[in-house]
Every structure is written in structure tokens, then in C-alpha cells.
Nucleic acid binder design. Sequence first.
DNA 1: CGGCTTTGACCCGCGC
DNA 2: GCGCGGGTCAAAGCCG
Length: 229
Amino acid sequence: MPTIFYPCPSLSGLLVKPRSPTLLHAMDFPDENPNHYHSYFREGFDPPATEFQVSDYLVLDNGFVEDDSSSQSMASPEQVPGGSSTGYSGATSRNNSMQNGVKKNKIEGGHRVAFRTKSELEVMDDGFKWRKYGKKSVKNSPNPRQNDYFDFISSLDFHRNYYKCSSGGCDVKKIVERDREDSTYVITTYDGVHNHESPCMVLYNNQMPMAVPQAWTLQDSSPHSSSSS
DNA sequence: CGGCTTTGACCCGCGC
DNA sequence: GCGCGGGTCAAAGCCG
């Protein structure tokens, strides 16, 4: 079974809810930042639920985000004809194709994952090097909160930051925005699959090679994605 | 000087 | 057709 690994930064507990039929395997490692840890997921493992703070999102594989949650800022299925929605309803890239008259927001490389992480920080180190190439303002939160902490969060500008992997030849993109439904959360969406190892993983492998077996190796795509290339 | 961020402009698709 | 929103481009500026 092909395996795909993605990094998921987290500050206060990883927020995971598998959206695909495959279960996910989490392996947590410390970051260079003591306030962070990263988790790497792979198919075929059911993490003990008690170890995780449940989030509303983890979406992956085959290039389409599956989203049956009606309470999120990400697109709901009805926003995209045909039922397959994307993390961003307007992600109408010029590379997107029309299929049978139904616009499918298929991403290059065939994979999209989204992490919803409870964090004051919008930009978290996930081990890869990213270059920012765009920023767009979005509407403010529809649910303003009332205590000091939420006031602080709500005072932040709501915007969407666009990043590309700065590694040459790697076309993976990352979109970061604060969840407009709950501004204490940050939604990070990865588009595509890295064709190289993370510099961070090289460090990990040097330090504890047995503990991180090929965690950043991106093996062949899943059966779902084989039709999306 | 190179790499990165910022930011306004532009392109495109969609809904009305 | 037009306006709007999302995504990208690219020039300018910043910083180490």
C-alpha cells in the first residue's frame, strides 16, 4: 500500500480527524522549537484517541478535500458541483481542468491535505522551507469572542497567505489562514507532494535514524491518486 | 548581493 | 455583461 507522509505542526496537541477511509498513523517528534512538535501520519494505524485533541480536519489523498463539516470556513460540498469540494472554493487555478462540464479542483500532484491547528501563530515550522508569494484579505470572523484572549485573536487581520516550497523543482504549495469560524485555529492546507526530503528530516535522520524511518520519504501515490496524475 | 516579504495589479471563474 | 472573490505574478523594498 502506498504511503504518504505529511508533516503536521502542532502547538498544543495535534488535531486530527481522519476524513478518508484509511486510518492514520501519528509519530510525534520534538521540534527545534520546544513549543512545537510534529506529527507524521501514515495509513494503517489507528492512534489512541486519548492522545489527541480532536480537530475537524485532516483531509488527504486523491487531490480532493472531503468535507462533511458544515461549520468550517473551508468549502462545503455544495460549493463545488459534483460533490467534491476543495479546501478553498475559489481555488480556481488556471491549471485546473474541466471534466464533463464539472469543474474539479484537482491539484497538481494529486494531493491536498489540510490541518486545523489550535495556535496563536499562523506560521509554524513544518520542516520545509517555504517562500511566500501572495497574501489575500478575507472577511473577518463571523463569530467574535468576548474574553481577552479571543479579543486578541479577533483583532488580528483575517487573511490568507500563499506559500510555495522554495526547493527547486518542488511545486508544493501551502495556504495558511486563520479559521474564520474559530479564530483560535489556524488552517494550513498543503497542495501537492514534495519531491524531496525535508531539511529538517535530514537532521532527524542524522540524530535518530532508527526512530524516524523514512518518515519524509514520499512513496508512490495512493491508488486514489493514480488516476489524478 | 541574494533571498525573502510585501503589495498592488492582473487573470480567471462564477453568480447574478 | 458586470462585479466579486480567489489565486498568481512581479516589481519594489527589506534584511542578513
